[in-house]
Design a binder for these strands. Structure first.
Lengths: 98, 98
DNA sequence: GGGTGACTTGCGCGTTTGCGCAACTTGTGA
DNA sequence: TCACAAGTTGCGCAAACGCGCAAGTCACCC
């Protein structure tokens, strides 16, 4: 049995921000799409089936949680996963959900 | 790089429910407390620093997400983690948050 | 400079969430 | 049976969220 290091409340608030980033189906769709490599905002919005401004807001949530990073090439912005452990966490959640 | 199996939107909705359960500092505090073993609602509420009805609602969220299970002994209800992978996921989130 | 494409940001709206509080259910013991 | 302790549930409210839409920023090309 693994015990978890006790955290301060401010720490848990940061952890909870990551939880909130994982709390929306469209944002999880983004993580799945980015598992194959970086994509532009327009690509992600079509794959998730939502409008570009909406996707931009979702990406803002993911970025401020530190799950994705952005890279600008000309006028298009490419997003990618910032850490392979993000996928590990998502896969764990998938298994827990059975 | 590990790819993630594409999910249906209903699947992602179930996964997002787990994300929402992990999206609150008090609920993360509950997971930390339960990592050492089962605890009653009253114990959890004092450790998390909130009132009993509030804790009961948080536990309801965790239970409907499948992260904890309850066991009743007399009039007190003991909660425990339903799956060790819940702690793994939480630890991954902690590491991602650095 | 003007126009266009790719994002981002601000606003308003309806829904959801977290909370305190009161009321209700259930088990225990005198 | 009565009182009390332990949880749960319902209600109302303030805050946060997801969304569509319009407007703004920035890079590129004629």
């Amino acid at each position: 049995m693994s015990t978890v290091t006790a955290s301060t409340d401010t720490d848990r608030q940061r952890f909870a921000a990551i939880g909130r980033a994982l709390a929306d189906p469209k944002r999880l769709c983004v993580l799945e799409c980015l598992s194959a490599g970086e994509l532009s905002v327009g690509d992600l919005s079509t794959r998730a089936g939502c409008h570009v401004p909406n996707m931009s807001q979702h990406l803002s949530v993911l970025r401020s949680a530190g799950l994705v990073t952005s890279r600008r090439v000309g006028s298009t912005v490419y997003y990618s996963l910032s850490d392979p452990r993000v996928l590990e966490a998502y896969q764990l959640i998938q298994h827990i959900a059975r």
